[in-house]
Amino acid sequence: MKHANLSVALIEFILCFLILYKIVSARRGAELFIRKIPGLQAIDEAVGRATEMGRAIFYSPGIQGLNIVGLQSMSILSHILRLAAKFRTRVIVALADAVLFTIAQEVAREAYTHEGTPELYEPQDIQFLSDQQFAYASASVGVMTRERVASCFYFGNFFAESLILAETGHHVGAIQVAGTPETAQLPFFIAACDYTIIGDEYYAGSAYLSKEPTLLGSLVGQDWAKLVLIACVVLGVISVTVAGISGGTALGAQLGLDRHWPAALLKVVEFFSLPVGG
């Protein structure tokens, strides 16, 4: 799709409006409920375990650069770094993108300063490895095994390297938490990690961990947006079903539905499938 048509623009506008509206109302102090997300709760446990064992934590934001997913990963990293700073536990962050790497350094410096332990910040622990997928994986597993890390976190865009990282993490005996919007990698994280965050729980992460009103509001807005999508699907399914029955059966013809009903209902389907740029 190269340009939005009216229905695309309209739906996108409605979704954005709902999200922004909820953000605004949350900022004004509306009470919001967020259900428990087990994988995200496990983060604290994993940090705690590394502290007990006196070993390092490994964090990977995946192999893509500065995009929406990467920035979300930085929010989660910030939470983990603050927790770790509190317990004086070392965190090794392995990056595959130069720009994201500099942001991670900023996030780390900021997190340690925030917890009042700027002296714990070790620039060498925020490492740029390689922007080449498997060189990154190879170097990462090298770090994981040599440092015998106690906990591993994988939050970001992962591709085939997901299983290399997660299996190695398991073999070194680390407790592992993972989350990725790359649906294809979820099965491997589920098989090899202790906790896996599924689908858009990933985007709920920062809101859930920080309890920041803006983010919570956005999360509630996302729920409403999904409700709109569900409504579209349900309405559409009902439309095409009725259209089928009334247009394609004797009963439909008998009731005189075959002329007008299908045409009217198909408008609903048509709404989503206007020709490109039309």
């Binding site: 999200i19 953000i23 920035l71 979300q72 858009d200 996302q222």
Partner: peptide, 11 residues
Amino acid sequence: LAVGMLATGLR
């Protein structure tokens, strides 16, 4: 995920 991306992008 698409909605999550839209919301994060918007923010």
